[in-house]
C-alpha cells in the first residue's frame, strides 16, 4: 500500500517536471515580459504544488511532511509578491505591454 502511494507520488513529481518544462517553453514562446510572467507562474503554482503533493505522498506521515506543507505555504505567499515586484519594476521602467487592442489606453496616456 505504502509502496503504491509512493509510486503515485513519483508520478506526480514527474508530472510537475512536465509542467515546469511547459512553463519554460511558454517563457520562450511568449512575446513580452508580462505574458512571460504568466507562463512562468505555471511553474510557480501548478508545478510547485504538484511537486509538493508528490513528495508528500512519498514522505508519508513524518516530520518531513509537515515541513513540506510549510514550504508549500511559503511558496504560495512569496511567489505572487515576487511576480508582482517583477511586473511592477518592468512597468515602472517603461516597458509597455503588447496589447491585443492597440487603441486601449495604458495607464500614463489615459
Amino acid at each position: 500500500m505504502a509502496e503504491a502511494i509512493g509510486w503515485i507520488g513519483a508520478v506526480l513529481v514527474i508530472a510537475a517536471v512536465g509542467l515546469s518544462i511547459a512553463g519554460a517553453v511558454g517563457v520562450l514562446r511568449f512575446p513580452d515580459v508580462y505574458t512571460r510572467i504568466h507562463a512562468a507562474s505555471i511553474t510557480d503554482t501548478g508545478a510547485a504544488s504538484l511537486m509538493t503533493l508528490g513528495l508528500l505522498l512519498m514522505a508519508g506521515f513524518s516530520p518531513a511532511a509537515i515541513k513540506l506543507c510549510i514550504v508549500w505555504v511559503f511558496i504560495m505567499l512569496t511567489s505572487p509578491a515576487a511576480a508582482h515586484a517583477l511586473a511592477g519594476a518592468a512597468f515602472g521602467s517603461g516597458h509597455r505591454p503588447v496589447l491585443a487592442d492597440p487603441r486601449q489606453p495604458s495607464e500614463d496616456e489615459a
Binding site: P80, A85, G88, A90, S93
Partner: peptide, 8 residues
C-alpha cells in the same frame, strides 16, 4: 518601481 505597493 513598486514603492508603496501594499502587496510588498
Amino acid at each position: 518601481a513598486s514603492a508603496g505597493s501594499p502587496v510588498l
